[in-house]
């Protein structure tokens, strides 16, 4: 059984009397342990798709299942709990709380899952060690470089041991070298058996994942043949190209 199962997902917005179909009948299966990218130009609906997959938003119609939970009709409390325990987010702008230290930022999801202070500290340090940030645990986000902030954000996404990690343009705000290191880190997480989904507009970044899904006008335009996965460009090739910041 697939980890994530989407069937005929629609999402419509009403903006000033105009109806916008952000998603128009998307069906998709994602298996556990996949490394997958969603690619598409801005306005294509890829962000909406990620928000729905990440339980930040709910579809207008269609069904969505994560593990054995039907998400499309879950209450907001259930959605919060799923976000907390089963999903990890990594954002383009890192989204760390400026007033908290690195360790406290990583502890944040565990505050809402009700772990004790001691357990929070231990697990946060473990997650920071995983991203090589344990020596920066007492720094504030403003004292860190972009790459360090993004690694902190990854540690935060990892700390509750989620079923799937979503990364929305994770390299968009980083220079190419740092971006490459971050992508490498996602690749490592994938190799450890985690499910990772990248959302990007940049085909070169999408190229690092074995499976790529292209979204255009709210529909899946083209899914790259999984059998071609092996033919994806290798890392060495990507590092030579420039990862452009997105808007």
């Amino acid at each position: 059984m697939a980890l994530l199962e989407l069937r005929d997902i629609h999402k419509t917005y009403h903006l000033g009397g105009e109806t916008i179909r952000a998603l128009d009948g998307v069906s998709l299966d994602i298996d556990s342990g996949e490394f997958i990218s969603i690619i598409g130009p801005s306005g294509s609906g890829k962000s909406t798709l990620m928000h729905i997959l990440g339980c930040l938003d709910s579809p207008t119609s269609g069904t969505l299942r994560l593990d054995d939970t039907m998400i499309h009709d879950a209450s907001s409390r259930q959605l919060a709990s799923i976000r907390n325990k089963k999903i990890g987010f990594v954002f383009q702008f890192f989204n760390l709380l400026p007033k908290l230290t690195v360790r406290q930022n990583v502890e944040l999801p565990m505050i809402y899952s009700g772990h004790s202070g001691k357990e929070r500290r231990e697990r946060a340090m473990t997650a920071l060690r995983r991203v090589n940030m344990e020596d920066r645990s007492k720094h504030r986000p403003s004292q860190l470089s972009g790459g360090q902030q993004q690694r902190t954000a990854i540690a935060r996404a990892l700390v509750n041991d989620p079923r799937i990690i979503f990364a929305d343009e994770p390299t968009g705000n980083l220079d190419s070298h740092t971006g490459e290191l971050i992508l490498e880190m996602f690749d490592q997480l994938h190799n450890e058996g985690r499910t990772v989904m990248l959302v990007t507009h940049d085909p070169e970044i999408a190229a690092v994942t074995p499976r790529r899904i292209e979204i255009r006008d709210g529909k899946i335009a083209n899914e790259a043949d999984p059998t071609l996965a092996g033919k994806a460009p290798r890392f060495e090739q990507i590092t030579n190209s420039e990862a452009k910041p997105t808007t």
Binding site: S76, R77, A80, R83, N84, K85, L108, N160
Partner: peptide, 16 residues
Amino acid sequence: VREIGICKSVGATTMD
């Protein structure tokens, strides 16, 4: 606002 959004994205409920 942004901080609240972050908290919600990592699992804060409305009640939290």
